[in-house]
């Protein structure tokens, strides 16, 4: 991470909770800290339900009720986003920080034309004439590989396939030229040629403008294509953090190790058995004081039942939350 410029984004101790009926609380994001420099991509992988989406929604302050940020700070270009007013935040959302949601169809109006949704995205932040709006929309769509932009701008999302809608979403996130893009599974359910186009488009934007990107995906191949560093989440915590190659080659946390081993081999066939981590993720409303992964971990020992390990530096640039991490060995 570049030392001269300092991080664009510094998240510290971020904790987000959902109170449930009956008094219990789901702590969906628990004490997460990381930094991200301009021009870099942080890939986030992890268990389904571990808090990835809630984490990036917390950064943008767009939590669904009754979610609330219970602690932490989110310093973006020198300002703590958790300490500014909603008005100021609105000026940042969509303009300086672009977001691509996990549910593409749900974040566009199904019946308004694509052109009007682009115009609206720009006019939320500045005055733009019709011709300029159209011009910028076409350029944003071209960046995500949409060729017949005239037809697409005139159409309405309910008439479009999932793949096209997702590219429109990304175009919308790019149109204001944000410094930071938060992308929640932006390539899921797209064919691999479109996935490739989108990754190339994001890389190009990043190279041209020094945009920082947070990219969530379950696809380890996609994560490897785009990320510089990766953070692995399990049970609302960051359990491992490091540069891409080190983490996929020599994972330190047993969960990361299990995750990488669960990637199916290339010669997979019907009738074979896929390797998976035994057991199921913890219920976040019923956590005890033990390591959250203890009940599924092959390396579990008494200290793991006694307390939940904090994320700590194990080797330079390699952080892990485990009492008995796997060894750091030479890079292969």
């Amino acid at each position: 991470m570049s030392l001269q410029s300092g991080p664009m984004l510094a998240v510290s101790g971020l904790t987000t909770e959902f109170p449930l009926k009956g008094g219990s609380v789901i702590r969906a994001v628990d004490d997460i800290s990381f930094t991200l420099a301009a021009g870099r991509t942080l890939g986030i992988v992890g268990e389904s339900g571990s808090g990835k989406s809630v984490l990036i929604r917390s950064l943008m302050r767009i939590l669904d009720a009754p979610g609330r940020i219970a602690a932490g700070s989110v310093v973006f270009k020198g300002r703590d986003l958790l300490r500014i007013g909603e008005r100021e935040m609105r000026g940042i959302r969509g303009r300086q920080i672009g977001m691509i949601f996990q549910n593409p169809a749900g974040s566009l109006s199904p019946v308004a034309t694509v052109a009007s949704q682009f115009a609206e995205a720009m006019r939320a932040h500045e005055r733009v004439g019709a011709a300029a709006a159209r011009d910028r929309s076409i350029r944003a769509l071209a960046a995500v590989g949409v060729e017949d932009s005239a037809a697409v701008l005139a159409s309405r999302p309910y008439q479009l396939s999932g793949g096209l809608i997702q590219r429109i979403m990304i175009g919308l996130a790019l149109v204001m030229g944000p410094d930071l893009i938060l992308a929640d599974e932006p390539t899921t359910n797209l064919d691999v040629t479109v996935q490739e186009q989108i990754i190339a488009a994001l890389r190009k934007v990043q190279r041209d403008f020094g945009t920082a990107i947070i990219f969530i995906s379950h696809d380890m191949g996609v994560i490897s294509e785009i990320s510089d560093d990766i953070m692995v989440m399990y049970g609302a915590r960051a359990v491992e953090y490091g540069d891409l190659r080190s983490v996929v080659r020599t994972p330190l946390h047993p969960y990361t190790d299990g995750l990488i081993r669960s990637v199916p081999p290339a010669d997979i066939r019907p009738g074979m058995r896929l390797q998976a981590i035994p057991g199921y993720p913890p219920d976040l409303s019923r956590l005890g004081g033990s390591c959250r992964f203890a009940s599924r971990c092959a390396r579990v020992r008494p200290p793991c039942e006694a307390n939940d390990p904090a994320l700590a530096e194990q080797a330079p640039g390699r952080l892990v939350a485990c009492h008995f991490p796997l060894a750091v060995t030479a890079d292969v």
Binding site: E47, H218, L259, S262, P264, Q275, I277, Y280, P281
Partner: peptide, 8 residues
């Protein structure tokens, strides 16, 4: 939509 382990 599932992580690779639950997917498996």
């Amino acid at each position: 939509a599932l992580d690779v382990s639950i997917r498996a």
